[in-house]
Amino acid sequence: MRLPDAIRLQNVSCRLGGSVVLGNVSFSVSRGEFTYMIGPNGGGKTTLLRLLLGLEKPDSGRISVLGLTPPAANKRIGYLPQHQFFDPQFPITALEAVLTGLSFSPFATGRLREKAISALEEMGLGDEAARSYAVLSGGQRQRVLIARALVGDPELLLLDEPTANVDPAVEEALFDRLARLRRRLTILMVTHDTGVVPAGVERVICVNRTVAVHPTRRLTGRVLQDLYRRSLKRVSHDRIIGERAGGGHG
């Protein structure tokens, strides 16, 4: 039996504060797909993620996530929110932060702790588990939050600007890890970065109140110019992280 799509939106419209943020949006993401979502600020990317998580309600249309209506599927979703919402002075260790993605039981059993440490190790932070979240670098904090998103073995990973505030080396390492993860889960990644699309991304969803979905190789500079309504200096695609960069246009 064929599993339902990981994400399916049918004629979804959403207004916030009296303005139309998304109008009559329809698209779907298949299981196991690695999809990018790009678009200008205020175009509705984050609202779309919030709709998928049930944090916002659509005014019309139907949303299905892993075959369920949001927020019913939330425990099967890993979510990375935008980094700037966090208090860097908060008294919590990297391990405790990851555990918040796993259990709220009064006592973290050894099994849960091992799982959280394993998620940190997967992000290259095994030695930082006991360190305060506050003293980690911006890139390390971002990876802690990705470990938190992954620790519950989600079927769908929603990432909101995971490469914001991280340097290029961390970004490459992150893309490398995501490329490996896509073998076992569906990934939808919101990004402001139109310059780098890592290997493995099959389609790019362009969001600016409406949605257009393009296969990665057909995302031309003209498409981006229409989306952002301004000229972009350089756009290169199909860059294979860890290997030589591929083709480009812009």
Partner: peptide, 23 residues
């Protein structure tokens, strides 16, 4: 605090994430 330490920690650290996780 003994019963709700972890939920309180999660809500203080990231309320929206805690809500998504079902708290």
């Amino acid at each position: 605090v003994l019963l709700l330490y972890r939920p309180l920690l999660a809500v203080c650290f990231d309320e929206e994430f805690a809500r998504i996780r079902g708290l």
